[in-house]
Design a protein around this nucleic acid. Structure first.
Lengths: 175, 175
DNA sequence: GTCTATAATTTGATAGAC
DNA sequence: GTCTATCAAATTATAGAC
């Protein structure tokens, strides 16, 4: 992948984290990377193609990151809580899949499908790590909701308050 | 409040639930209620004023609904889980505060402030019902995240999977 | 309170030169 | 691969008639 294509996806990702699918324009992305908006179309034919590529890359990176972390720490709850904590504590504080997923029914179908794949991947990996389907759903909802509530309250510490109990119970279960 | 003002807020609320702040336009709202877009401005001067009014009404209604439900059922976890379940199971499946909160940093300040007030109200009421601050944060995050994940997966049953464990543990704690 | 008309801006996208 | 130029459509908002 060319450097410019990567730079475009980086810029789009950051703006999608803050404002979702309608939170970025080709002109803004172009300015961010130092070219013109028509040149962005050379790398990504449409806005939906760019958004879908960004979501897929985020999903792939998350999947890879979790796999590597699980090799060092066998507790999936601790691994996933820490992974999303990184997103919650650093700007722009949100996971793009969460922002887009909240308005999934207003997205172009290919983009909504990539978002769906992301959350299905999260659930599948949690179950593969030993959680029951119900526990996987409950835990994933807690960390996703913690991102949204912390973002809304403008208080990153809210993420830790929301996830403290999950980690504590897990420690007990493991001990 | 005039019937037309209420109808405008109803239309805006529904579109905000699906697409957030940028998910509705004055022309769409106008068509929904059968007037022209310029006439909408007679009732709400700006888009941000309309959005802020819709969020505030949603917060007030939620607060009132929960107060009444708590008078019949003393368990706040059951009451709040059931309240958001109604949103999750019926179209357009989302709480507008959750959709807007996910992209809080891309909102006009007065709108973001109303969203913040909504989530702070939820936490305050949960703590007033007897939950510790940490448990209130964890529980709120779980039901908010359940909305987002269920919406993204296009599977309303996901809300019940995510909240089943919370209700079960609560039943044990009460028993 | 609703209308017509319109301003001013932004949007995603395309054509074609270099 | 980037540019200039441009298009058609949509956006929020305002002015003023009725």
């Amino acid at each position: 992948m060319s450097d410019m294509k990567t730079a475009i996806m980086d810029a789009a990702e950051r703006r999608m984290q803050a404002g979702g699918f309608s939170g970025f324009s080709f002109r803004e992305i172009a300015t961010d990377v130092g070219i013109k908006s028509s040149s962005v179309h050379h790398h990504f034919p449409t806005k939906e193609a760019l958004a879908a590529a960004v979501i897929r890359r985020w999903a792939d990176r998350t999947s890879d990151h979790v796999d590597k972390a699980l090799a060092k720490d066998p507790d999936p709850v601790r691994v996933w809580t820490k992974a999303f904590r990184g997103t919650a504590l650093s700007e722009p504080h949100m996971c793009p899949c969460t922002v887009l997923g909240a308005s999934s029914h207003d997205l172009p179908k290919p983009v909504a499908e990539e978002v769906r794949r992301f959350f299905q991947m999260c659930l599948d990996k949690l179950v593969a790590s030993g959680l029951t389907p119900n526990k996987a759903s409950e835990f994933l909802s807690t960390i996703i909701g913690a991102l949204v509530v912390a973002n809304s309250l403008r208080d990153t510490a809210e993420y830790d308050r929301a996830t403290k109990g999950v980690l504590k119970n897990r420690a007990k279960a493991v001990a």
